[in-house]
């Protein structure tokens, strides 16, 4: 057993080294005098950050847009992700699952179709998740034109894929005994899930949603680069204009936004979970 683990560890380390070599990652590059000098030049350009009231007041709206983009995107992801996760939790659907114990086996068409929601939702979640939000956003730009809508849809679809999968796994990992007890008392399968599984998983589900909302804040900034508005778009413009002092201010604002999201989600976690 121990020997097996050791071999696995060695194999993992070898794979990491091989990957680094393959992509020609050379940390020494960072220490070359030329690289250091140009980095220092670039860095100096950021100081001091532009904190003039004139400029700051123009960043207020983009900052709000970033929050809106992240929040609307996360809400959309929940709207798609929750139903998909309920379909994708194997313990709820697969034959012989804990919620079916004691039920007569479904025969014929019903028996064949019983696991269908599971496979369909897993396929959909994989497809949604494997395409990053920025590519989804670029696809949606064709439909909605440049602007926040494409960004919201991009975050919504990609995050629904991630949240649906993780939610399903959280629920699969939840103690099923209360739900089985409710089935024994005559509750239906949906009732047993709503009463017996979801309340037990709620704390983790809420925590993960808040974490995703923080991630969405960063994703929203990136989406700005492809025209979805918000701080990201301002950063892109200021960099293109070589207004580095403004870029610095915008990056600080983005940092503060993510920190704010962290504080708010911490509060919600303490209050409700």
């Amino acid at each position: 057993m121990a020997a097996g683990r050791f071999v696995l560890l060695l194999a993992g380390a070898a794979a990491v080294l091989a990957s680094l070599r393959f992509v020609e990652f050379n940390p020494a590059l960072l220490l070359y005098p030329d690289a250091l000098a140009s980095m220092a030049d670039f860095g100096q350009g950021f100081f001091p950050p532009d904190l003039s009231l004139d400029f700051l007041s123009t960043t207020l709206r983009p900052a709000l847009e970033t929050i809106q983009l992240a929040t609307a995107g996360t809400a959309l992801a929940l709207a798609f992700g929750i139903p998909l996760s309920l379909m994708a939790a194997g313990t709820f659907h697969l034959g012989g699952g804990p919620l079916f114990e004691g039920d007569p086996p479904a025969r014929g068409m019903r028996g064949t179709l019983r696991p269908a929601p599971y496979w369909i939702s897993r396929l959909a979640l994989n497809a949604m998740r494997s395409i990053p939000e920025i590519i989804w956003a670029l696809l949606f730009v064709r439909m909605t034109g440049l602007g926040a809508a494409a960004g919201i849809l991009g975050i919504g679809v990609a995050y629904a894929g991630i949240m649906g999968k993780v939610f399903a796994e959280i629920m699969e990992g939840t103690d099923m005994r209360p739900a089985i007890a409710l089935r024994a008392a005559g509750a239906s399968r949906p009732q047993a899930i709503v009463y017996g599984v979801i309340p037990g998983a709620m704390r983790t589900l809420l925590s993960y949603t808040l974490y995703r909302w923080e991630c969405a804040m960063r994703a929203a900034a990136i989406l700005g680069f492809v025209g979805a508005g918000g701080l990201g778009q301002q950063i892109e413009i200021s960099m293109r204009m070589f207004e580095h002092t403004r870029t610095a201010t915008l990056i600080i604002e983005l940092f503060l936004l993510v920190a704010l999201a962290d504080v708010i989600s911490g509060y919600i976690r303490r209050r409700f979970a």
């Binding site: 007890a181 089935r183 024994a184 008392a185 009463y195 037990g200």
Partner: peptide
């Protein structure tokens, strides 16, 4: 099933 009530060793409450 609803005509039989069960009390479990671990209670199995939520």
């Amino acid at each position: 099933r609803s005509r039989t009530g069960t009390i479990y060793q671990q209670h199995n409450l939520i």
